[in-house]
Design a protein around this nucleic acid. Structure first.
Lengths: 227, 227
DNA sequence: CTCCCAATCTTGACAGTGGCAAGATTAGCA
DNA sequence: TGCTAATCTTGCCACTGTCAAGATTGGGAG
C-alpha cells in the first residue's frame, strides 16, 4: 500500500519468508518498507528496530549494517514520506489547471489531505527524531514538497508582488496549512470540524488559503505598480 | 525556573534529599515538578519515569501510586504547560491595550514566543502522548489559552463580522501561529528566519496575523452591513 | 576455476526502560 | 492506643537499542 514496490535488486528471491538465506539480497529496502508501514500505522515513537527486523525475518542486529542508528532508519522513512507528499502535491497542482488561486488552494488541500490520511506518518515527518539531526537527505526531499507551495503562492500573489510580500504569503500559507493539519490531527478544532471528516478539513484549508491569497492580492493591488 | 514553587503541603520537610522519610509528604507535586523540568529540557520522548523518581529521591515504583501511567504524568505536565501558555498570552493581551489589531498580533506573538523559548516543552504539548487519550484536564486547560486567541480575533474582525467569517479568521490565525511555531522549531523557515532568533520569529508572527486580520476586515467591510 | 577477503548476517550480552506483585512502613482515624 | 488503608520499597519480567565476536557467503583477484 505504502507505495509500489522497490527495486528488487540482484537476486530473485522466491519466498521472502520461508527460506531465509544467510544473505537477504536487499535488506536495506526491505527494512525501509517494513519501517514505513509501521510508522504509518503507529508513528515513529512506537517503532521498534527489533520489530522491524522480525517482520523482515532477520536477526535483531542485522539492521545495524545498513542503518547506524534508529534515527537513520527513521530518516530513510522520512525521506520516502516527503517524496510521497511532494508527489501528491505536484499531482494536485497539475489537476488544478491554470487559475493561480485554484493552484494555491489545491496545493494546500493536498497538504492537509495527506496529513489527514496518514496521521501517524505525517506527525513523524516533523519534530521528534527528524528535527534534531535533520538528516540532509530528508531536508532535500522535503524542500521539493515545499517548492510546490512556494510556486503556487508566487503565482497567486500576482506578478507585481514584492519579494518581501511574497515571503510573507508563502510563510503564512505554509504555516497555516501545517498548523491546520496538526491541530486537526490533535482534534483541537472543535467537533464541527472533526465530525466532517476529510471533507471538513479540506474545506477549511481552502477557505484559509483563499483568505491569505486574497489578502496579499489586495494589498499588492492597492499599493499600485511596483516601485 | 519552570515556575515558582508548588504548594508545599502538609508537612514541612527540612531536607528533601538527605533524610528520606518513608513517606515523602508531597510526592505528586514533586514528581510533576521534576518531570516538567525534564520535559522542558529534553522533551517528552526522552522522559524516563525512573529518572524522575531518581531525581525526587524515591524508588522507581513510587510514581505508580500517583500516576497510573507515564502518559498520566505527561498529562499533568501538559496541563501545567498550558496554564503557563495561557498566562503568557493573557499577559500579552493585557499589555497590548485597546487596539483590536494590536491585541491579536500580540497574542500571536506571545504564542510563538512561548514556543521559541520552550521548544521541547511546546512540542510535547501537542501530538505524541498527549494526542491520543487526550486527557480531559489537558483539554480544559488548553482551551483557556485558545480562548485568548479567539477573543482577540473576534475583536479584530470587527463587530459586524458573521459567525462563519469569524470562525475562518480564528481557525486561520490559530493554525498560522501554531504552524509557524513548529516550522520554526524544525528550522524549516530558511536561514534568514533562523538567524534572527526570537526577534525574527516574532516579526513573522506579527506580519502573518496582521495579514489575516486585514483580510477579514476588508472582506467584512466590502460586503456591507450584516444581512 | 579456485581461493580468499570483505560484506553481510547471527548469536549473545549489557544497561536501561515501563509495568506488575508482594512485602515493609507509617499516617491518621476509630 | 490500636489498626486499617495509603504510601513507599524491593524484586521481577518482558522489552528495547546498541555493542562485540563469531558464522556464512558473494564476488573479484590470481
Amino acid at each position: 500500500m505504502a507505495r509500489g514496490d522497490v527495486t528488487e535488486s540482484r537476486r530473485a528471491r522466491a519466498n521472502p519468508k520461508a527460506d531465509h538465506p544467510y544473505h537477504h539480497g536487499d535488506l536495506r529496502a526491505a527494512l525501509v518498507d517494513a519501517a514505513y508501514e509501521l510508522v504509518e500505522r503507529d508513528g515513529a515513537d512506537a517503532l521498534s528496530l527489533r520489530e522491524v527486523a522480525r517482520r523482515v525475518g532477520v536477526s535483531h542486529a542485522a539492521p545495524k549494517h545498513h542503518f547506524s542508528d534508529k534515527a537513520a532508519l527513521l530518516a530513510a522513512v522520512g525521506a520516502r514520506a516527503f517524496d510521497e507528499l511532494a508527489a501528491t502535491m505536484e499531482q494536485a497542482r497539475r489537476r488544478a489547471g491554470d487559475d493561480p488561486l485554484a493552484r494555491l488552494t489545491s496545493a494546500g488541500v493536498a497538504y492537509v489531505s495527506f496529513a489527514a490520511s496518514h496521521p501517524a506518518l505525517f506527525r513523524s515527518m516533523f519534530g521528534g527524531a527528524l528535527a534534531g539531526a535533520a538528516d540532509a537527505e530528508v531536508r532535500a526531499r522535503s524542500r521539493r514538497a515545499f517548492e510546490v507551495l512556494v510556486d503556487a503562492a508566487s503565482h497567486a500573489a500576482g506578478p507585481s508582488a514584492t519579494p518581501a510580500e511574497l515571503r510573507v504569503l508563502v510563510t503564512a500559507a505554509w504555516s497555516a496549512v501545517h498548523g491546520l493539519s496538526l491541530l486537526w490531527l490533535d482534534g483541537r478544532l472543535g467537533r464541527r470540524a472533526r465530525a466532517g471528516g476529510g471533507e471538513a478539513i479540506a474545506r477549511l484549508a481552502t477557505e484559509v488559503t483563499e483568505l491569505l491569497a486574497e489578502a496579499v492580492r489586495r494589498r499588492v493591488e492597492s499599493r499600485g505598480p511596483r516601485p
